[in-house]
Design a binder for these strands. Structure first.
Lengths: 159, 159
DNA sequence: CTTGAAATTGAAGCAGG
DNA sequence: CCTGCTTCAATTTCAAG
């Protein structure tokens, strides 16, 4: 079974802490401790341990792309002509640096990269592809799919 | 031009705050104010305003899927047989609820959904597809692509 | 919108169980 | 590994520029 305590070293308290922090990372340690029924110092100790062990990699704020002027999202499949290690890594870096790039997936299959982007409108999306992706010689083909909607999933802390 | 102050109502201070909080949401308000050269109360006021206006949707912790026992990631393309509003919405909900589902994209094109998942190993991935995706009658076809690597992009707050 | 100072609240350190 | 207590630091509030 995946994600058990034996395999991950996470007990139910750790999981409850992670669940709460994924939902709202700005929960105070005090509130967290009270909700989970442990001492504040215990709760703080656990959170620090989770960070130290690398389970928690950091904290971010979730932004609304539309509120930032980019209400249009797309998934752009990028196919390469050459798959030399150097070409792949160079393009990977270039894709991650594209203005409006939200995430980049390096995947197996006919397409090499999936680039999730946000842009102001369809025209800006076209310009993004023409100015930052197809300009790379190693790119053989791109395919842009409009993203109607995007959700977070249940994640790895079921229950 | 996308993302200008006129269009988004965000001045340079707002952008600097967002940039800092995206990088590390656990930055204290005090440190943030000092770094940006404004009063603590001003900084706190701006952050509250950004939350109220919906630019900041919330805060989360970044977890390491591998540390949670799921080092294998995949992108699963899901194609439907019927595209009635009801079928699409029902499946959307079902995909988001799949254990290990990190994100779901509802996209335009031949494939209807891209499901980004994490699993313990290849076998768990197979079981995930067979038990939670192809079991839905409306699913006509799936295509699972291993995710070699996954990065965050430059985002919407260019320098 | 911004500010500084007061008042409240939360976090960190530590010795003991 | 967990806890309560003390000390220290951060956040919130607010009247005023």
């Amino acid at each position: 079974m995946a994600g058990t305590q034996a395999e991950t070293g996470l007990d139910p308290l750790d999981r409850a802490i992670l669940l709460a922090l994924v939902e709202d990372a700005s929960t105070t340690n005090k509130a967290l401790a009270r909700r989970l029924g442990v001492a504040e110092s215990t709760c703080a100790y656990r959170v620090r341990a989770l960070r130290r062990r690398g389970v928690i990699r950091g904290a971010t704020v979730r932004l609304d792309p539309a509120a930032l002027g980019s209400p249009v999202q797309a998934m752009i499949k990028v196919r390469l002509g050459s798959h030399s290690h150097e070409h792949v890594n160079t393009l990977y870096d270039a894709l991650a640096a594209v203005p409006g790039a939200l995430q980049v997936f390096h995947v197996a299959g006919a397409d090499d990269f999936y680039l999730h982007v946000a842009a102001a409108d369809a025209l800006a999306l076209r310009d993004l592809v023409l100015n930052h992706i197809t300009t790379h010689r190693v790119v053989r083909q791109t395919e842009t799919h409009l993203v109607f909607d995007h959700r977070e999933g249940a994640g790895l802390l079921p229950r």
